[in-house]
Design a protein around this nucleic acid. Structure first.
Length: 892
RNA sequence: GGGCGGUUAGCUCAGUUGGGAGAGCGUCUGCCUUACAAGCAGAAUGUCGUCAGUUCGAUCCUGGCACUGCCCACCA
């Protein structure tokens, strides 16, 4: 055969080529296969805020592995790709871009700004898509979707209108998490709480009814006092009972505010007296509702002080104002003391700005009704979580669910489809602007706010398949099969998709969720821009290829563990390159394949495996391959990707290359054409089966090599995935091959430990009564000589150890290598004694166990039997070592 | 404050019905044995966090403790 493959593994020379080939042949499109079932996944749509990071690398690799695996197994497979418009995040990116040009959002009209965001979004969308392709993702691009494209917008409107009309969406004044930098409300779970050290200020408020007396309140936020409308005490706190019905004079404002009594107040905390600011604190808000207090908003949207505060504080930022208020209080003699204090501060998950609770008009979805079926679906096993421990997290959230704030004061996103009549104020939800209101008025104004980005993502599993149209795709591919995602969006996305699926489709959106670990740096820190510890997957592809990237991540990943990765920056030679694992494996596969292809005669036609006259090693390698197939399938079916990767590597490298290929070198020199033909046929067969097995993990190199094999088809992608066949297991061959490798090991061990140079060929004497060994040494003399660098082989029960020979022994044989002149009796004795010590330890442990009456009386018979066998093996091994030690001692 | 993980070789981690401690990387020794030096052969290395319990027997099961990471949570 003409050798078409390059001498060195160079992924750049073929990866893009094969991706193009797959596209040209439309191999990613769903096709009916032999299984008659579908396998569907929807991609967790990456945000169009930037390029992909390592987390996407992992997540999409796993999805692609599943897609390719299921496709080869004959499932009609669809993987839907797409991207997310990511409301706040994308708007922020564009605002930062504008800031560099010295501009801000409000310099533009809403339409102009949105157009500008579209440009950025498209640009990122394009690069995300090309990156997914670079990684080898076999998603069907005909299905590509965007959470803000026309079809998805239609779905969003339809869902909003339905929920609105059923009363599940409502508008209300509420205290929400407000990001002053982004200028919008956030949902509860978009706020990160972080412990910070702060202060508690103790402040005196004069008591109106008791001139000259004060109440001391403790607060972490003195700047909010302008909005205070009460001072609260615990209703059982006798210290303050005397203030019932009394009033306090709010400093600066000279406003009279009442004393209220509420069980919420902890008498042991602070001074036991709490200033209540219902418009600037969620707890105070609740108390405000309970006690009918006034809600006074003292800040603007950007957290500067508004006109409701005294003039000297107006326009100040809240932190600046805090200092000014404290200083003024101090001057007025109202500041009692300042204490240090640790407390959790809410921050915007997008820009880390400290959240300002804000009393405002917002839209909400009632969640209780949606949550119950979602809890049930998981409890009933209609959806399986892997690892299952995430079920608890999911349940806990749904059991304590609060209404979902879905309005955002942004420009980029789905605008809320609610229209208000200018004359009668009636509101309607509609797909398009209604021509006129029921009152006859023709002026209808749409809401300014847009929807939370997750309000479009939660529909993803069915909106991508064409809903609300009744499409064939929907009928065929919904519900989808597996969702692969990171656990940090279990609430944002996973739980909500389950709720939406059950509500709008009457069925779960997927039957299995696989939660991957998070990608960390080698020190176990999250990869982040600010730490600069991120790894760009495309730098890895550039250096090692996509296959190496994919293999490495999968080999390292573990269902219960985050994965730690390191990759040196340009010019850095010290740091660990985790991806060498994959690069080395790819290189090994490349070279082994090259060796096999190099040895193929022109137009070689491999014989059929079933009809070949196979020897022990042929049957052994076929058995090992078969076992590997079984284990890999089992691992992939249970999302144990690391096991699958390791299984394949240990087979290919440890069994196939280290033994079968090495043995083949001798056998291929055989003068018997049948032997040579058989070896080549089996090499080709095993390689091809292995490439198919590996293809889901390393799609490019497997295709490249496959295309160079004799009798290859259109693509390895459309080959059948290997299947386990019980009749290929061959216990006899396994036992014999293992014995041959044992002898080989004993001989190599001596040479290695004695540092015998390669060119020095030694006689190999094998003393044994074992028939397998005797037979093997005769049949594979040449192989043994080649692999153990021997000059001759003698085998039998009556072999006598020559003077000055080194010894190796196991439970059924002794190997002697004559090393006259090289061997030193003392070192040889030390070596054997060390070995003896090890075996003796095992022997004594086992023997003690068998001498323990409790053990023999209570342990199962088969365990006792196994221990007895072990004991016999140890004993036999021991005796051989002892005998040889005696012989050596006599020489001294 | 609640919940969930982790603790095994220098490093990163496997170890699923409790019965002779593993891999990869790194280290040491010897080899450019013509597929592969991104390689080959050989070697060294572990009170399996700690204390107790269950058991004939615990890295594995139960409980306590220590350290560590993450998630949730309105204590001013």
């Amino acid at each position: 055969m003409k050798l078409e493959i390059e001498k060195t593994y160079n992924p750049k020379s073929f990866e893009d080529k094969w991706y193009g080939y797959w596209l040209e042949n439309n191999l990613f499109a769903p096709k009916a296969g032999k299984k008659k079932e579908t396998f569907t996944m929807v991609i967790p749509p990456p945000n169009v805020t930037s390029v992909l990071h390592m987390g996407h690398g992992l997540n999409n690799t796993i999805q692609d592995i599943l897609a390719r695996y299921k496709r080869m197994q004959g499932y009609e497979t669809l993987w839907v790709p797409g991207t997310d418009h990511a409301g706040i995040a994308t708007q922020n990116v564009v605002e930062r871009e504008l800031a560099k040009e010295g501009k801000k959002r409000t310099d533009f009209t809403r339409e102009e700004f949105v157009d500008r965001v579209w440009v950025t979004a498209k640009r990122h969308q394009q690069s995300i898509i090309s990156q997914l392709r670079k990684m080898g993702c076999s998603a069907d691009w005909n299905y590509e979707a965007f959470t803000f494209d026309e079809k998805r917008s239609k779905a969003v409107k339809k869902v909003f209108i339905e929920l609105y009309d059923k009363g599940l969406i409502y508008k209300s004044k509420y205290i929400v998490n407000w990001c002053p930098r982004c200028g919008t409300a956030l949902a509860d779970d978009e706020v990160n709480h972080e412990n910070r050290s702060g202060k508690i200020w103790h402040i005196k408020y004069p008591i109106k009814e008791l001139p000259g007396e004060f109440i001391v309140v403790a607060t972490t936020r003195p700047e909010t006092l302008f909005g205070d409308t009460a001072v609260a005490f615990n209703d059982t706190d006798e210290r303050f009972a005397k203030y019932r019905g009394k009033h306090f004079i709010l400093p600066f404002m000279n406003r009279e505010i009442p004393a209220i009594f509420d069980s919420y107040v902890d008498p042991a905390f602070g001074t036991g007296a709490v200033k209540i600011t219902p418009a600037h604190d969620p707890n105070d808000f609740e108390m405000g509702l309970r006690h009918n207090l006034e809600f006074i908003n003292i800040m603007n949207g950007d957290a500067t002080m508004n006109d409701l505060v005294p003039e000297k504080f107006r326009g100040m930022d809240r932190t600046e104002c805090r200092k000014a208020v404290v200083a003024a209080l101090d001057e007025m003699g109202l500041l009692v003391k300042i204490e240090d204090h640790q407390h959790a501060v809410g921050q915007c998950y997008r820009c880390n700005t400290i959240i300002e609770p804000r009393y405002s008009d917002q839209w909400f979805v009632k969640m209780k009704e949606l949550a119950e079926p979602a809890l049930k679906a998981v409890a009933d096993g209609k959806i399986e979580f892997l690892p299952s421990r995430w079920v608890k997290v999911y349940n806990n959230w749904l059991n304590n669910i609060r209404d979902w704030c879905i309005s955002r004061q942004l420009w980029w996103g789905h605008r809320i489809p609610v229209y208000t009549c200018k004359s009668c104020g009636k509101m309607v939800a509609a797909e398009d602007t209604p021509e006129k209101c029921s009152c006859g008025c023709t002026e209808m104004k749409q809401e300014d706010d847009v929807l939370d980005t997750w309000f479009s993502s939660w529909l993803w599993p069915f909106s991508t398949l064409g809903w609300p149209e009744k499409t064939n795709d929907l009928a065929k591919f919904y519900p989808t099969s597996t969702l692969v995602t990171a656990p940090d969006i279990i609430f944002f996305w996973v739980a909500r998709m389950i709720m939406a699926g059950l509500y709008f489709m009457n069925d779960v959106p997927f039957s299995r969720v696989f939660f991957t670990g998070m990608v960390m740096d080698l020190q176990g820190r999250k990869m982040s821009k600010s730490l600069g510890n991120g790894i760009n997957p495309f730098d890895v592809i550039d250096r090692h290829g996509a296959d190496a990237l994919r293999y490495t991540m999968v080999a390292i990943v573990s269902p219960n563990q985050n994965l730690k990765l390191g990759f040196p920056k340009e010019g850095d030679k010290e740091s660990t390159d985790s991806f060498e694992i994959g690069a080395k494996f790819a290189n090994k596969i490349w070279n082994a394949s090259r060796y096999i292809l190099m040895n193929l005669p022109e137009n070689f036609v491999p014989g059929k495996i079933e009809t070949l006259k196979k020897d022990t090693f042929d049957n052994w390698i076929l058995g090992q391959l078969n076992k590997t197939v079984k284990n890999v399938i089992d691992a992939l079916d249970n999302a144990r990707f690391n096991d699958a990767a390791k299984e394949m590597q240990s087979f290919f490298w440890g069994s196939f290359c280290d033994y079968y290929v090495e043995l083949s070198k001798t056998r291929m020199l055989s003068t018997d054409e049948n032997v040579k033909n058989t070896v080549l046929s089996i090499l080709i067969y095993v390689l091809k089966e292995f490439l198919k097995l590996l293809h889901p993990i390393m799609p490019f190199i497997t295709e490249e090599l496959y295309q160079n094999l004799p009798e290859h088809g259109l693509s390895i992608m459309v080959e059948d995935y290997p299947e386990y066949k019980e009749n290929l297991d061959d216990a006899d061959a396994l036992r014999k091959a293992q014995k041959f490798f044992d002898i080989l090991y004993l001989a190599r061990n001596i040479r290695g430990e004695m540092n015998v140079p390669l060119e020095k060929k030694l006689d190999i004497l094998v003393k044994t009564a074992d028939n397998d060994v005797i037979e093997l040494c005769a049949a594979y003399e040449k192989e043994l000589l080649t692999l153990a660098k021997g000059a001759s082989v003698k085998v039998g029960a009556d072999i006598v150890k020559p003077q000055g020979a080194a010894t190796g022994a196991n439970e059924y044989c002794e190997v002697f290598l004559p090393l006259e002149g090289i061997i030193d009796v003392k070192t040889e004795l030390e070596r054997l004694n060390k070995e003896l010590g090890k075996v003796n330890k095992d022997f004594e442990k086992t023997s003690a166990k068998l001498n323990n009456e409790n053990f023999t009386a209570k342990a199962p018979a088969e365990v006792i039997e196994k221990e007895k066998e072990k004991l016999a093996e140890f004993q036999s091994h021991l005796e051989k070592l002892q005998r040889n030690i005696e012989l050596l001692k006599n020489m001294q």
